[in-house]
Design a protein around this nucleic acid. Structure first.
Length: 610
RNA sequence: UGGGGAUUGGUGUAACGGUAGCACAGCGGAUUCUGGUUCCGUCAGUAGAGGUUCAAAUCCUCUAUCCCCAGCCA
């Protein structure tokens, strides 16, 4: 893979990185100056697919570890068996690998290698819970969920303690053991931390640590009847793995007090009869990604899939990583996008065009160029046989990638019958700025010849079905003809793409528009009725399938292009620039015999704006 | 009415008491065999009010606005 000449975009050092730098310098986690001590983790719950919002979190935790020469674990936070499935875990791991990140022990052969699971820590968490109960810092509560909620209080009125709050330690221990063995029904009892029912921070009003769930877990089977809550489990998982910096999103700021409380509670009296103190990571919060015109709510994405608004989680219009991948997005473009949005605690809005621009930038440098006529209009070169060689094919050299000279050229066939884009011809152009083909007008066929439209042929309905043109043999390759006797060079303003009708490959091209045309699809308008449905913002016209497109026959790409890094992407997905249109990716999931190309993003069009 | 966070051009993001910079978008121009790319120019900002200081986006006080929190979800 060749390097593009571009210099790396200047990367700004964000606040989390500064904290890490300071910790490295002070030797908080190891020898001062040893950057490799940085340990982060990405802890998804395997209950759905990763989307572009998750990509930011992935890039932060994995990216920071990469930058410091430390490590980032992939850990499935599988503490709630009723929502989790192995297939989600598999998809998540695949998406992270696709982005180009690796966790310790990740192997190329075994996709599962090195992946960690909260469920593997259940026994240790259980021991620590017993410890907290024994220390009088936790208790079993017999109240049901409704009662507990009612007693929790409000922002201004303190909660009231459970009547079971001060029950004997032995009784709690016994009940906890019976909970574990499955003697009680779902929700019958919980274990609660004994903190402060009057705390202004709700998370500290005796939070639940364990609930009874008589549900089989996708990894531990029916070994457990109790499952730990996030707040209890998460810090312990981080502690066990020796995480130095536990990075999460802003909504967990209020949970940090609890995160710290649990670890401190375990460490109380340590070193001592309970053993050595356990590791205490630092939780740091950052703002989520918040892109315009898409939804990232898992519930809403699921709704789109379930109601058939899209073809699946990997529909190319979906903001899931699997959808973006199928659409043609490169991992590099997504990582570049995450770099430009930065890392702060500010709830920013990220224009989705930034993501599109990141892809354009990457693909402009790397994607091989091809000519593809999406909506063919036949052109017959009437003077092609002027020397009696009407059936001949001429092969024209075309540049594979103007951004990368080493990508070389290819030979494109030119013959008597061609296709051009229907849009590139107008019988009656609206103004003088029409540089493309018109009756009596001349245009350059890129890398081909200059042609002049002599005759327009229509069918019974008046639709143009064919153009009869003449070519100028002196313009071979698309170059200007030699100067005339007076030294004047003839010029042509317009250049259009084309294919040879007899040589082109028929392909299917799928073009996508935004799934939602408003900036905030899930935000109800000010005067919306109570039953306002967010799906009213759905763009009914977001998919366009073109079945009759014609691609020049240089496909798949050449060895030369592959060898210099164009036409060869690390994820094995081929992407091309169809000149004057956009960037297109081969859809391998569609399972059709005819090649299918998804339009990842169009070229910028500074013309339509004017 | 409680607690926790946040606020710098249109949108993001730097500046860590010392010239408010960069990117994207916008606008104008140049180059171009892609209405692409590239290049040049340009518009535009410290939420508000006080205070400290030779000097404040930065420190202090008050105000405003926005986000999160009352799951046996994560």
């Amino acid at each position: 893979m060749t390097e593009t000449a571009k210099t790396e975009p200047t990367r700004t050092v964000h606040f989390i990185e500064e904290i890490m730098e300071a910790d490295v310098a002070s030797g908080k986690w190891g020898a001062p100056g040893d950057r490799s001590v940085i340990r982060t983790r990405f802890p998804p719950e395997p209950n759905g697919y990763l989307h572009i919002g998750h990509a930011k979190a992935v890039c932060i935790s994995f990216g920071l570890a990469e930058r410091f020469g430390g490590t980032c674990n992939l850990r499935f936070d599988d503490t709630n068996p009723v929502k989790e499935e192995q297939r989600y875990a598999d998809a998540i791991a695949e998406d992270i690998r696709w982005l180009g990140f690796r966790w310790p022990g990740a192997g190329e052969a075994d996709a599962q290698a090195g992946i960690l699971h909260a469920s593997d820590y259940f026994p240790r968490m259980h021991e620590w819970a017993v410890e907290l109960i024994t220390k009088g810092k936790a208790y079993v509560d017999d109240q049901d969920a409704e009662t507990i909620r009612a007693a929790r209080g409000t922002p201004t009125v303190p909660g009231t303690p459970s009547p079971f709050r001060d029950r004997p330690v032995e009784e709690s221990l016994d009940l906890f053991e019976r909970m574990r063995r499955g003697e009680f029904g779902d929700g019958a009892r919980v274990v609660r931390a004994k903190i402060d029912m009057a705390s202004p921070n709700f998370n500290l009003r005796d939070p639940v640590m364990y609930r009874v769930l008589n549900t089989a877990h996708h990894r531990t089977g029916d070994a457990w009847h109790i499952y730990p809550m996030y707040d209890w489990a998460h810090g312990l998982e981080d502690s066990i793995e020796g995480i130095t910096h536990s990075l999460c999103s802003l909504e967990f700021e209020d949970h940090r007090a609890l995160y710290d409380w649990f670890i401190d509670a375990i460490n109380e009296g340590r070193p001592g009869e309970w053993g050595e103190p356990i590791h205490h990571p630092q939780q740091i919060e950052f703002a989520r990604l918040n892109p315009t015109s898409i939804v990232t709510s898992k519930r809403k994405l699921r709704q789109l899939v379930d109601e058939g608004k899209v073809s699946g989680w990997d529909d190319p219009r979906m903001p899931t990583l699997s959808g973006l991948r199928r659409r043609g997005y490169t991992p590099e473009s997504i990582r570049s996008f995450c770099e430009t949005v930065g890392v702060t605690k500010f709830n920013a809005t990220h224009d989705i065009t930034l993501l599109e621009n990141a892809l354009r930038e990457d693909l402009n440098a790397r994607a091989p160029r091809r000519m593809c006529v999406l909506d063919p209009l036949k052109v017959v070169i009437t003077n092609w046989g002027e020397h009696g060689d009407e059936q001949r094919t001429e092969w024209m050299a075309a540049t594979n990638n103007p951004e990368n000279e080493q990508a070389g050229t290819r030979e494109v066939p030119f013959a008597r019958e061609l296709f051009i884009e229907r849009d590139d011809f107008m019988e009656e152009p609206p103004n003088k700025k029409w540089f493309r083909l018109k009756p009596g007008g001349e245009v350059r066929l890129r890398y081909g010849y200059w042609i002049t439209c002599q005759e327009v042929i229509k069918d019974d309905t008046g639709e143009v079905v064919e153009l009869r043109c003449t070519y100028d043999p002196q313009t071979r390759g698309g170059d200007s003809p030699p100067p005339d006797a007076e030294g004047k060079v003839r010029k042509v303003k317009g250049t259009v793409h084309w294919v040879s009708a007899g040589h082109a490959v028929e392909v299917e091209v799928r073009e996508y528009d935004r799934l939602f045309t408003v900036e905030r699809p899930d935000r109800a308008p000010k005067e919306a009725p109570d039953d306002w449905d967010w799906l009213t913002n759905l763009n009914a016209d977001s998919l366009r399938v073109r079945t009759g497109a014609r691609l020049e026959p240089n496909w798949p790409v050449s060895d030369v292009e592959r060898s210099v890094g164009t036409g060869d992407f690390a994820d094995g997905i081929a992407r091309l620039q169809f000149e004057r249109h956009g960037y297109y990716a081969v859809d391998g999931s569609a399972g059709d015999s005819r090649p299918i190309f998804n339009c990842a993003v169009t070229l910028r069009d500074s013309w339509s704006k004017k």
